[in-house]
Design a binder for these strands. Structure first.
Length: 435
RNA sequence: GACCCCUUCGUCUAGUGGCCUAGGACUCCAGGUUUUCAUCCUGGCAACACGGGUUCGAGUCCCGUAGGGGUCGCCA
């Protein structure tokens, strides 16, 4: 039988990276075996499962490139089948009506656990066992007549022909119950594989306060879907060799459950940033250009296509995340940039700087051609003649025209700004800091 | 508390009894290239949780201990 895996999230409006990693592993596993990856939306919790929440889920999957092979199954449409199965189980004596104390009132339907030890071979963790005396009968239909997760989940997996259930290890306890349900329903057991949790930078479980654990937040923070995908794949799995940056094809080819880790993994934003940088470098010129256009638009910085032509080469290999684009471009496209106080204090308000700037002003005004190579020669000559050193010349000039101590290569920046603008900014800064 | 799961550098990991004086990557630190900014190059710091076994030999197998996590809903 060909492999069929599924991602069965409950749409809540946020998609946690732990869930998304499970989706990625299911996708990879199905692709590796030439099987199908399915999506089932477990939307039976009416309160939380809004159209917006489902949209958020779908968008997150699209962003990461996780296309499903069949139309999604919405669990809410399957209630009749779930209840019919409960009836069947009651007829077989495998489930029964009863009053159970607690939240509900009235009779609900409980599934009768078989009363024997249940053991299964987990594809990731090995043999897992739970003794009969530690398992109790559980509710499968509420007293209000709606089916409970366990019943719905198992029935839908059977319905969709799921052969491998790969999910978080917080489901291990559920799996013992689910196995009993499969058997009672006379269905063949799928292979189960339980993934360890993903924890935050402090090694603790992600909580509501760890806002950056949602897929949408990573996107908003300037990470690329492919980069997050690659990072998440490596968080709990490895190809068995030293490869890290991998193409989808390579991942699909190498992905096996046996190489999954069985202990929790901690998210390291620094490493994610590094990986994101590597992916940004691999972006096509057209993709980077449209990313730049969007970043500038969000930051409300206007730019013509000609300006983009000039600015992009300066920043192309300097951004680790897309969110760094706008701040880096700002001074190139507008003159209302702020002067970094620390930079000013450290590099500008120093002995001799005013004279240096005055000298540079003259040279820049007179230089025959205002292009980067010429400007580079000009600055070199000045440094040599004045004996001041680049450290005393370049940084002050840079701060005057950009407000910052760091940034793109200086001479090309001067060229892009043009002579008039550079002189104007120079005069403005000198007036501001030295008069 | 009961039951279940987990444990190699700070982090992600390689390692399936000898190839391990434990390898790679990220981070960090030190040099070098670039006399701006950044990149890049080289080097360095740094781990088998602990205690018992089994074995000629254990990071790798077994048992304990400790620590961490999960589950104990008429949520999913």
């Amino acid at each position: 039988m060909s492999v069929r895996t599924r991602f069965a999230p409950s749409p809540t409006g946020h998609v946690h990276i732990g869930n998304m990693r499970a989706a990625i592993y299911n996708w990879l596993f199905a692709r590796h075996h030439g099987g199908a990856f399915l999506l089932r939306v477990e939307d039976t919790d009416r309160e939380r499962s809004t159209p917006e929440a489902i949209d958020t889920l779908l968008r997150a999957m699209e962003w990461l490139g996780l296309e499903a092979d069949e139309a999604p199954l919405y669990q809410s449409t399957r209630m009749e089948a779930h209840l019919a199965a409960a009836e069947r189980l009651m007829e077989l004596g495998l489930a029964y009506r009863a009053e159970k104390g607690g939240a509900g009132s009235g009779e609900c339907v409980l599934f009768r656990m078989p009363g024997r030890t249940i053991s299964f071979e987990d594809a990731i963790k090995g043999t897992l066992t739970k003794a009969a005396e530690n398992m109790e009968d559980f509710v499968i239909v509420r007293s209000n007549g709606t089916p409970v997760f366990h019943l719905a989940n198992v029935l839908d997996d059977i319905e969709q022909g799921v052969t491998h259930v790969i999910r978080g290890d917080d489901h291990i306890e559920n799996t013992y119950r689910h196995i009993a349900l499969y058997e009672a329903l006379g269905a063949e057991l799928p292979v189960f594989g339980h993934l360890p949790m993903i924890v935050n930078g402090q090694g603790k479980p992600y909580s509501k306060r760890d806002g950056d654990a949602f897929v949408g937040d990573f996107r908003a923070n300037g990470f690329l879907g492919d980069a997050l995908f690659n990072y998440l794949v490596l968080l709990g799995w490895s190809p068995g060799d030293d490869r890290e940056i991998m193409s989808r094809d390579e991942m699909v080819e190498a992905f096996v459950l046996e190489k999954c880790q069985s202990s929790a993994a901690q998210v390291d934003l620094k490493k994610l940033s590094w990986m994101n940088y590597e992916y940004i470098l691999q972006l096509s010129d057209a993709s980077f250009r449209s990313a730049t256009r969007e970043a500038l638009s969000v930051a409300e910085i206007a730019a013509t296509e000609e300006q983009l032509d000039a600015v992009i080469p300066l920043i192309r290999e300097r951004v680790k995340t897309l969110t760094e684009i706008a701040p880096l471009c700002r001074f190139l496209l507008r003159d209302d940039y702020a002067y970094n106080e620390k930079a000013v204090a450290k590099k500008l308000l120093k002995e001799g700087v005013q004279e240096t700037l005055a000298a540079l002003r003259e040279l820049l005004l007179e230089v025959s051609s205002f292009d980067a190579p010429t400007l580079n020669r000009l600055l070199h000559d000045y440094v040599e003649r004045s004996g001041k050193g680049f450290g005393a010349v370049m940084p002050p000039l840079r701060i005057c025209i950009s407000g910052e101590q760091g940034g793109p290569d200086l001479c090309p920046v001067l060229e892009v700004l043009g002579r008039d603008e550079v002189i104007r900014r120079l005069d403005r800064a000198v007036e501001m800091f030295f008069d």
